[in-house]
Design a binder for these strands. Structure first.
Lengths: 202, 202
DNA sequence: AATGCGTGCAAGTGCTTGCTTGCATTCTAG
DNA sequence: CTAGAATGCAAGCAAGCACTTGCACGCATT
């Protein structure tokens, strides 16, 4: 890795950590520079703005996350397996970026540049998820006595809360893969047991 | 209501709304004054600090929420009814304060005065909830193949996400009581169906 | 009528923030 | 070895922040 791409790397990593910890507005360019081990001026020479750093981070997200579940065409077969795969990819990508994406979603309400970066992505994701839930309900793969948007919200809650809870509680360190896998499996198991199609009762 | 207590009221309400929308650090005293329809100086004459406003808000929380489920002695009888009551009180209190409590929990990580206000309250709440889950597991009132802290986290996720999701998506208006009741019931129903004790299989 | 008290208004202080400028230094490619 | 690019360093600037001060006004109680 060349020296120049290394500083870019360090800057973006530091910015990601700090955005996750303190949000966009709460992160100063001086703090980013310090954590990256770089002079503050270098930030502005490499990216033109603080917003420029955010933009570069967003592009990196888009590369690695490949759409954050948007436009995913789910295999209409095994609902449980589909949910497990979905939960796993969402949670592990959220853990990878240290919760920055979730934290930034909060900031979008008040920070215009964050709102512009995310656009209507989260909203479209939820709508797509609800649409998928409705589809599975029609196919008999999910219980039908709960509204699809409630099912979608609950699923979103389960997956996002894993990271969110640790952000709130201060347990920010990334857990080893096995513990994460176990918890995700238990969460999906819990969700699936509740969301599976009912018998004739209730 | 006397004129003086009215201004105090308006200030605290404005501060609560703004803290919920933008967080503590993101809320300026000017913005609070403007929304309260009050001169900025009045803020500092009534409460000594910006932190003083936060403290006063916290005391009001404590009065109305009466401990935010901490120290609650659950009736060991009907688990489902207990969960429904718990979810309802948590969600409706969160809706009442406009999500300020949840948003402030995020700020606690980085803003010392917020951390001091909340103390270890959230953490103790979660531990108490997990302990209750474990107790119900032992009594055969909850499935035992999922760790109690996962059960507790999932329940926390379900209840907090209702408000959290609307904060992120921008749908901040308080819903009418009936719609809230229905959604909460469906959420608890979903959770309970998944968390109820199993038969002999898995 | 007089005395406080709560409030508004205007101005200002010291600090932090994002961002810039000018210059010296190091690194690297040809 | 040398030219150009990347980086560091010191200093500073305008704006926004929490917070203060001094003064004037209105309103209720006495």
């Amino acid at each position: 890795m060349s020296a120049v791409s290394d500083t870019t790397e360090r800057i973006l990593r530091a910015a990601g950590e700090l955005f996750a910890e303190r949000g966009y507005a709460g992160t100063t360019t001086r703090a980013i520079a310090e954590r990256a081990g770089v002079n503050e001026v270098t930030l502005f020479r490499r990216f033109e703005n603080k917003a420029g750093i955010l933009r570069a981070m967003g592009e990196r997200f888009a590369e690695t996350a490949a759409g954050f579940s948007a436009g995913r065409q789910p295999d209409p077969g095994d609902t449980r397996a589909m949910l497990l795969g979905l939960a796993h990819s969402e949670i592990s990508s959220a853990v990878e970026n240290g919760g920055a994406a979730i934290r930034l979603a909060f900031d979008a309400r008040t920070v215009p540049e964050v709102a512009e970066l995310l656009g209507d992505g989260p909203k479209r994701n939820m709508e797509a998820l609800a649409a998928y839930m409705a589809m599975r309900q029609d196919a008999g793969g999910l219980r039908s006595d709960i509204e699809p948007h409630v099912l979608a919200e609950a699923f979103f809650a389960l997956t996002s809360s894993y990271v969110m809870y640790r952000m709130v509680m201060g347990n920010a360190e990334v857990p080893e893969d096995t513990a994460l896998d176990t918890t995700v499996e238990q969460l999906v198991d819990l969700y699936w047991s509740g969301a599976a199609p009912r018998g004739e009762d209730r």
